[in-house]
């Protein structure tokens, strides 16, 4: 790596976040007496829990990341997820579907999410409205549909077996003293999704369109991108993905609770910003986002271990929002000069 490239790297938020993550790992490792990483074997009860927390948060963060790169804010993805999985589980339960295989459920949830995302995309690309306002509206609308119009109920013990067994799949198991722990197979989906999103962002013209639109929408239009089409495709795909991620969560928790997603965007979006995505659009990477999600998951899971009251979680989340937004704004300012 040459000097200029090294210098560029040290200017990126991702680089510092990665250092913070390493330092945090060292701190937790020492404070907990070696409970974070085992030698040999690496996996411990703590780090499989952290990874488990990262699955849904990380996948949601990808939804949020792609939208933020294009210069938008999506507040509605948790509501889309909630409506998609609640409706899917109710339909599957009523029809007796998915007793063995969860595939139909996942397809159905993604399809519902896709339709809901299309509404976002249609409004945003046609009327050129502020994305935060639009998705705030649709978020409330979708929550209203699920709670009021359809009156979807919580499904816990009656959840179709296909989902339950799928969520319990694991790729690794170990024993900590007498307690058995497993690494959920859902981690594979997170890794796969990160790889796909990273490929799309860096290696496809669609991905570059997101950066271009986030950087300067007028220029993107003049350069020959069909901005309307790109945005529609973006929001509808994010909708489909949200539905899918929602189903992963249902499987992992073995329950479908319509209200469970409320306010989730307020922990995901700050994480994405902390990971180097700019609130003004045009900046952000998969790596940075994953690192930021890892930091947040690590902190929230090791608080008890470190003897910190869990009430501090809120404090920490607030801090993340402020630090993330400040760093993002400072960077934008530096770039302007």
């Amino acid at each position: 790596m040459n000097k200029a490239a090294l210098k560029r790297m040290t200017r990126r938020t991702e680089f510092y976040m990665f250092i913070v993550l390493i330092l945090l790992c060292v701190l937790v490792q020492i404070k907990s007496g070696g409970k974070l990483i085992a030698f040999p074997g690496i996996f411990t009860r703590l780090n499989v829990t952290v990874l488990r927390t990262m699955v849904v948060n990380g996948m949601f963060a990808m939804c949020s990341l792609v939208v933020m790169i294009s210069g938008g804010f999506d507040l509605s993805f948790p509501a889309i997820a909630a409506l998609s999985y609640s409706l899917t589980c109710t339909i599957c339960l009523n029809n007796g579907w998915c007793q063995n295989s969860p595939v139909v459920g996942f397809l159905l949830a993604a399809a519902i999410g896709w339709v809901l995302g299309m509404l976002n995309g249609w409004i945003i690309s046609n009327f050129k409205l502020n994305t935060m306002i639009v998705t705030l509206g649709t978020q409330t609308l979708f929550t209203g549909i699920s709670m009021g119009l359809l009156a979807l109920k919580e499904i816990t013990s009656t959840l179709p077996n296909g989902f339950k067994t799928f969520g319990k799949l694991y790729i690794l198991e170990g024993v900590d003293g007498k307690i058995r722990f497993t690494l959920s197979a859902m981690v594979i989906f997170l890794i796969l999704l990160c790889a796909i999103v990273s490929f799309i962002l860096n290696k496809t013209m669609f991905g570059r369109a997101l950066y271009a639109i986030g950087g300067n929408e007028v220029s993107a239009e003049r350069a020959g991108y069909n901005v309307k089409k790109v945005k529609f495709l973006l929001y509808s795909s994010v909708g489909a993905l949200s539905g899918f991620v929602g189903m992963i969560r249902v499987c992992m928790e073995s329950q479908s609770i319509p209200k469970a997603m409320v306010g989730r965007e307020m922990t995901i979006i700050p994480a994405v910003i902390l990971g180097g995505a700019s609130i003004f659009g045009g900046e952000g990477t998969v790596f940075g986002t994953v690192v930021a999600v890892a930091i947040i998951s690590l902190v929230s899971n090791s608080m008890l271990l470190l003897g910190i009251d869990t009430y501090w979680q809120q404090f920490f989340n607030g801090l993340v929002i402020l630090v993330g937004v400040t760093v993002s704004a400072l960077q934008a300012k530096r770039q302007k000069q």
Partner: peptide
Amino acid sequence: YQDLSIFPNL
């Protein structure tokens, strides 16, 4: 154009 139609982030 006057704004040069560039992408500052790229």
